[in-house]
Simulated assay, not measured.
Amino acid sequence: MAKKQNERKGTKTNAVSLVTLIDPSSPIAEQYRTIRTNIQFASSADKPIKTIVVTSSGPGEGKSTTAANLAVVFANSGQRVLLVDADMRKPTIFKSFHLSNAIGLSTVLSTIQSISEAAQKTEINNLSILTSGPKPPNPSELLGSARMDQFLAEARNLYDIIIFDMPPVVAVTDAQIMASKADGTILVVRENVSRKESLTKAKGLLHMVQAKVLGVVYNCAENAKDQGYYYYYGN
């Protein structure tokens, strides 16, 4: 049933490229490690960055690719990482890691099932993944619920870093809701795809909920020596 739903017109998603896993010595993989380092430097003892929202202004800008590869490089550094596919409308992560999506975030938020029961371990040391789960009728309500606050408290006790792959912030309210709860937010921009007016609106929406924007990941720059190079601009 889930497969049929995902393949309906306008909802089909594809697996993302895990360059940090396939080619860890590549320039792009090194850029992800640079982003990881910048996030670590932005963290402090009194304000640690443990929960990170990854979003974009619109579709097709690389947010899921960024979230997945960041999760890999954080796990490779020895930290316990939970990658959460919080894009319950158009999930991608389960395809990229070849996992079942029978249970996931929607299950945990709507039942008494715990994170440890629903999260799936991967072949990568220290990396666990909570897929989106069955598509719920009310994703934004689930994310804004008291159960989500309990989820965050539980996840903080189990993992060092929790990364949320969110829907585009301009399209729906999901990313705004989670950005207001997370320690930091990363906005992904894609050259020749992201629109200036959408980026301006995305910035305003994140500012409205007092999100801590850690920086912008700018990908697929045509003038880069290696096309697909990622840059990170911190605040």
Rank of each mutant, 00 (worst) to 15 (best):
K4C: 00
D149N: 15
V53Q: 01
L21N: 08
S145P: 12
F74A: 07
A102F: 01
V19W: 03
L21T: 06
S114E: 14
N6P: 01
K196N: 11
K4Y: 01
A155L: 10
Q150N: 15
L143T: 11
C220T: 03
I22R: 14
L187D: 04
V172Y: 03
M166L: 15
R190Y: 05
K196M: 13
H98R: 11
K90R: 15
L158Y: 02
S43G: 08
S132N: 09
V216K: 09
D46S: 15
N14T: 07
I129A: 10
A179M: 11
P59I: 00
T11S: 06
K212H: 15
Y32S: 01
R156I: 12
Q40M: 14
D160H: 11
N76G: 05
I186F: 05
I163S: 08
P24M: 09
S180Q: 14
N14D: 10
V19Q: 07
A155P: 06
N223E: 14
G144S: 13
A202N: 09
P59Q: 02
G62S: 01
G234D: 11
E154L: 06
K47C: 05
D46V: 15
A182I: 06
T37F: 08
A211W: 07
R195M: 11
V172N: 00
D85L: 01
P91F: 03
L214I: 10
I52K: 04
A146M: 14
K203L: 08
A171L: 00
A68I: 02
Q79T: 06
I28A: 10
D149S: 14
G10M: 00
N101V: 00
L105H: 05
M166F: 07
